[in-house]
Structure formats: C-alpha cells, structure tokens
C-alpha cells in the first residue's frame, strides 16, 4: 500500500494522463503532437509557417470529405461512394459547360446529379434494407461506370476557360489564409451547428446509438437516412469543386486511388467509432490534422508513394484495432450481418 501513496498534484496529473490515454481521441492527439515535434525537430522545413499553411491546405479537401463521411458514420452508416460522386458530378458539370451550357447552369446540373445520387443511395439503404457498405460500394461502381460511359470520355477534365472567379476559390486567399482552409472552417462550423443544435443532428446520434430504438420511438428513420446520404453527396460535390478549382482540373482516376481510405483514416483516427452514435466535428479536425502531419512529413522525407500507402494502411489498421478495444461492439444493438 505504501508505494502507491503519492502527492495530490501527482495524482491529479496522473488522472489527466489516464483520461487522455483512455480515449482514442487522447491517444491520437498525443501522437499528433509527438509526430509534429519529431518532424519539426528532424525536418528543418517542416515547422515554417508557409509549410504549415500548405499542410493544412493540402488536407482541407480530405477534411471536407471527412465531414460528410463523419455525418454518415455517426448514424452507423458508411459512404464509400463519395469519391465516385465527387469526380463524376464535377466532371459532368465541366463537360456540360464546355459543350455550350453556361457555367452556372452546368454547376447546377452537377449538384442536382450529386443530390439525386445521394437520395438514391439513401433510399436503397432506408427502403431496401441493404447494408450501407454494400449499397455504397456497388453505387460507387455504378456512378463511375455511368459517368465514364455516358457523361465524359477523358479522365482529366479542365475547368472551362473564362471562369477566373471559380479558380479563385481554390487558389485565392482571404487575409492571407487560403480560401480552401476557410471553406473547411466554415463547413466545420456549419456541421457542428447541425449536429449539436438541430433535431436532425440529435436524431443522427440516436440512430447511431441504437437504430431499432430510434425507429421505435418514432424518429422519421427513412427520411433522415436519405437526408444523411444526400448531405454526404452534397459535401462530396463541394469538395470536388474546391479540388478542381485549386488544381484547375479534376481527375476521374481519383476514383481508383486510395482517397476513400484516406477519408476513412481521418474519420476513424479522429475517434469517430464505426459503431456510430458518438463523435463530433472536433474529431474530424483532429484526424485531419494528424493525417496532414503524417502525409506532409512523409512527403518532405521523400518517401515513395507506395510506401506512404503502406504506412497509411498500417496506421489505419492500428487505429481500428484501438477503436475496437476502446469502443467494443455492443451485442445488444449490433445486428446479425452487421459487418
């Protein structure tokens, strides 16, 4: 007993440390700080303000996409068709604009396409009882196949000429801060408001905690599911526009890249359990920053792209292992066939 006796201050700090390390969020936060310090010490270019801004800017698109994913994951869903929706709706809008439509109308058609796609996926899940993972996995394939077959032939679609205001979104700055980052911040605030202060947000948490209970208590289950996937598709479209404007083009091959895993990486690393029911925008920001530090550091160290993928995969796997240890599956509410 005697060796366990410690001073009160030590005890409280011990408690704080315990508290940090008991939640996955705390662990990731600690890791992010550690990674930042290590990179800052080892890589001379890392800690410069220019690099840090570039860092946040480079991952803000990932962050925006992760916001959409987070909304769906909190409700115990998943949307792996986000990249397909993003590239196809934006590419189609550009193709239409080049073929004679005014740019505004073309963008409107693009956003309508994204919304219709989201509603269709949501309906498939809500009314068809299809598990979200399969619905969105198959939907990704369908959307991309549809786009490549009927909407556009070329993989690279440049922003139609004569729309400099559009390029300003991705490349301009407000008070020295890139607009991409501003957009990410605004969307974060918006989603935070929705999740914490609207009935829709509360019901999203309720559905994630226990879908059956939410349904029984009278939540408009099906409309909300559809709304969630419409929202995630819309966010994917917004992210696509920002991406296109910052790179002056959109590349349909992104669908075949590991980008969707990066989004999941952000969400899961940030501490939003795949079981749903908990997590907030704060987690997305944390995950985004950590992934940003990781990617930026590896890029500065000139690590091969394929090895970066391996590292990301392993980190994501570790994150999932920790997630499942911290938030074990609830046998009461997890269903048969709930993968």
């Amino acid at each position: 007993m005697s060796e366990a006796r410690t001073t009160p201050e030590a005890k409280s700090s011990q408690k704080l440390i315990q508290k940090i390390f008991r939640s996955q969020e705390g662990i990731v936060f600690a890791l992010a700080v550690a990674a930042f310090l290590v990179f800052a010490l080892l890589l001379p270019a890392f800690a410069s303000p220019g690099n840090l801004l570039a860092l946040v800017r480079s991952v803000s698109i990932l962050g925006i996409l992760a916001l959409g994913m987070a909304l769906v994951v909190i409700a115990r869903g998943i949307d792996v068709s986000m990249i397909a929706t993003m590239v196809v709706s934006v590419s189609w809008a550009f193709v239409l604009a080049r073929s004679g439509y005014s740019f505004g109308i073309a963008l409107l058609i693009g956003v309508s396409f994204a919304l219709v796609v989201g509603a269709a996926i949501g309906a498939l899940i809500a009314f068809g009882d299809v598990p979200p993972i399969f619905a969105t996995l198959a939907a990704g394939s369908v959307i991309y196949g549809l786009g490549r077959t009927f909407f556009f032939k070329l993989e690279m679609q440049n922003v139609p000429p004569g729309n400099d205001w559009f390029l300003f979104i991705g490349q301009g700055r407000i008070l020295g801060v890139p607009i991409t980052i501003v957009a990410f911040g605004v969307l974060c605030l918006l989603l935070h408001f929705i999740l914490s202060s609207t009935r829709f947000g509360w019901l999203t948490y309720a559905m994630g905690n226990n879908p059956a209970a939410a349904r029984i208590t009278g939540a408009p289950f099906r409309p909300i599911v559809i709304a969630q996937y419409v929202a995630s598709s819309f966010i994917a479209y917004v992210a696509g526009l920002i991406l296109a404007s910052s790179a002056s083009a959109i590349n349909a091959r992104l669908f075949n890249s590991t980008m969707i895993y990066d989004i999941l990486l952000v969400v899961v690393l940030g501490g939003i359990g795949l079981n749903g029911g908990h997590g907030s925008v704060r987690n997305v920001v944390l995950g985004t920053v950590f992934v940003g530090i990781l990617l930026n550091g590896m890029t500065i160290m000139n690590i091969d792209y394929t090895i970066q993928n391996l590292v990301k995969g392993v980190v994501l796997l570790l994150a999932i292992v920790v997630d499942s240890l911290v938030n074990p599956r609830d046998e009461q509410t997890s269903q048969q066939g709930d993968l």
Binding site: T258, N309, L310, G313, V314, L316, I320, S324
Partner: peptide, 27 residues
C-alpha cells in the same frame, strides 16, 4: 486474427488489409 480474435468489423478491416496487401504488391 484481426476479425476472429480481436473482434474487428470484417468489412472495414479487410478493406484496410486490401490497401496494405496492395501497397506491398505495388512496392
């Protein structure tokens, strides 16, 4: 081991191992 013993969710876990195995192949 991941899915059976650590009780991870099968879908997401094998999605990640898909990336890892693919990365190994690409390397």
């Amino acid at each position: 081991v991941l899915v059976g013993y650590l009780r991870l969710r099968a879908f997401i876990t094998t999605l990640v191992t898909l990336v890892i195995y693919r990365a190994l192949y690409d390397i």
